[in-house]
Amino acid sequence: MSSQAPLQQTRSSDRGADPDTRRANALAHLVLNGALVVLFATLFVHAGALPSSMWEPLGSGSFPRLVLAVLIMINLGIMVQEWRHYRSNTAAAPGLVRRWLWRHRLAFGVLALFALYIISVPALGFRLASLFFLVLAQLALGVRRPRSLAIAAVIAVTFSFGLDWLFRDVFIISLPRGPFS
């Protein structure tokens, strides 16, 4: 490498990316880290309401608030760096967002299933909500053959009912029961 060649710092996600997608990657990182800052700030505020104990002079919310403050600072630093990348790259071609969404449809589908799972746990209880989530997630991930379906069913039953039993009878931690439990 000659001493005349300019040094260009690239991220691992940009090495294989064409110039069209570099700006889109930077924008995606900005949006993600911005959402994380909002989430962590909300949790930071709620951590202040944790009940205090007479044995902890700082209170039970001090450590979570410290961790969340560090996470907020890290995400803000990443956002500053990504803003520089965003401004230094040219605009992307039309249709890039649609292609990106299509390429990541499986991840978004699993996230949507997980959101439905979180919403359904209070209504159905841990066992049934977990059973439905695990079966649907495995179907979304491509389980189609009879043997794979049988293995998926065993995994779903084991993790939904087995974890409920483990927490209820071994750890003596009550998970949401639901109307059918």
Rank of each mutant, 00 (worst) to 15 (best):
Q4G: 05
Q8Y: 01
Q9V: 02
R11S: 13
R11K: 11
R11P: 10
S12G: 09
D14G: 11
D14C: 09
A26T: 09
A28V: 07
A28R: 06
H29C: 06
V31F: 09
V37E: 00
V37W: 00
L39D: 06
L43A: 13
L43C: 12
V45S: 07
H46N: 08
H46G: 05
H46I: 11
A47P: 15
G48D: 13
M54R: 11
M54E: 11
W55M: 07
W55V: 08
L58H: 10
G59E: 12
S60D: 14
F63A: 05
V67E: 05
M73P: 02
I74C: 10
N75D: 07
G77W: 15
Q81P: 08
W83E: 00
W83H: 01
Y86E: 02
R87D: 09
N89L: 12
A92V: 05
P94I: 02
G95Q: 01
L96C: 06
V97W: 15
R99E: 15
W102Y: 03
W102V: 00
W102M: 00
A107I: 14
F108C: 00
L116N: 11
Y117D: 09
S120H: 07
S120W: 07
P122C: 02
F126A: 03
F126V: 01
R127K: 07
L128K: 06
S130Q: 10
L134R: 01
A137I: 02
L139M: 12
L139P: 08
A140V: 14
G142K: 02
V143S: 08
A153P: 10
I155T: 03
F159G: 03
F159P: 04
S160H: 01
G162V: 02
G162M: 03
D164P: 02
W165I: 10
L166C: 08
S174L: 05
S174T: 06
L175N: 01
R177D: 12
F180A: 12
F180P: 09
